[in-house]
Amino acid sequence: MSPADGARPSRGGRPRDPSRDGAIRQAILRVLAESGYAALTMDAVASAAGVGKATIYRRWRTKSELVADAVAELSEKSIEPPDTGSLEGDLRLLLHWLVDAVNGPLGAATLSLLSALPHEPELREAFHSGPMEVWSSTFRQVWERAEARGEVQPAALGTAVATTASSPILQRWLFGGEPVSTDFADEVLTDVVLPLVSARRAA
């Protein structure tokens, strides 16, 4: 395996100057979005970040480690669970955040990595323990608060009604080939989710 594939052994862990890490991680996502995972190399990341190749190799031994670290870092900047006092207000903020996420660096990186995830355990783990866990936890807290306020029936989180909040957005993003906007998220909330919540409560 060539150095471009990231097979070089570690040279002592993290660098002396951690201030470059943010720029490097942003460069990783840019290269992923522009070239895809298969074409991503350590050299390309170093060039995009404006650092020497040795700086990259001191931080990460393999390409999958490098990308997984960048994905995990994004999770730390995610939204706090909203608490507006109503399910409608909470879901609106949460769905707007999801729209921003799929249209931003994480969304572009995810699209480029989808074909690689089944074959890259480190990347899979980074997504499951990072962005996916953040989303699941935040989503769960919104529905649990709604249940505590009496807005939804107990155990609403595990129902098809709850999944209708994010599924149309993700479907359009992954398969629709159409822009995903906050207007579309508002439409999903107003015309689909809230009527289903009301119908389920009435039943």
Results as ranks from 00 to 15, higher is better:
P154S: 08
L117P: 04
P105A: 13
N103D: 09
A48S: 09
L66W: 02
W60I: 00
F127Q: 02
Q141F: 04
E147F: 05
H128Q: 15
F139G: 03
P15H: 04
L32R: 08
A109E: 02
D21Y: 01
D17P: 01
R61I: 04
R92Q: 12
S115I: 02
G130M: 12
G130L: 13
S35R: 15
E65C: 04
H96I: 05
R30D: 13
R30I: 06
K53A: 10
L87V: 07
V152S: 03
E73D: 14
S137R: 15
A148D: 08
G13W: 03
G107V: 07
A160S: 13
P121Y: 11
G85P: 00
A146C: 01
L91M: 12
S64V: 14
R140Y: 08
E125Y: 05
T62I: 04
L91W: 00
A68M: 06
G158H: 13
R145S: 10
A70V: 08
D69Y: 03
N103P: 01
E73R: 14
A126P: 07
G89K: 12
G52E: 10
L87R: 02
V45I: 05
P18E: 10
F139K: 09
P82E: 03
Q26T: 07
A70R: 04
L29Y: 07
L91A: 08
W143Y: 05
G89S: 05
H96P: 00
F139Y: 15
D69K: 11
K63F: 06
S115F: 00
W143R: 05
L114K: 12
A156H: 13
F139Q: 04
L114F: 07
A156T: 11
G158C: 10
P154I: 06
V31H: 03
R58A: 10
L94F: 15
K53I: 13
R25V: 02
A148C: 08
R124Y: 12
L117G: 10
V161I: 14
A39I: 06
S75L: 01
F139S: 09
R16P: 01
G104A: 03
S35T: 10
A108T: 02
G13L: 12
P82V: 07
P105C: 06
E88W: 06
A156W: 07
V99F: 07
R61D: 09
L94E: 07
G107R: 10
I56S: 08
R61S: 15
A38L: 14
E125M: 09
L157G: 01
E147W: 05
L32A: 05
T110N: 11
E133W: 04
R20W: 01
Q153L: 15
K63R: 15
L123T: 08
A38V: 13
T62W: 03
W135G: 05
S78F: 13
S115C: 03
G89D: 07
L95M: 15
E34M: 05
L32Q: 03
G107C: 09
T41G: 04
L123H: 06
A54L: 11
V45P: 03
A160V: 13
L113G: 04
Y57K: 03
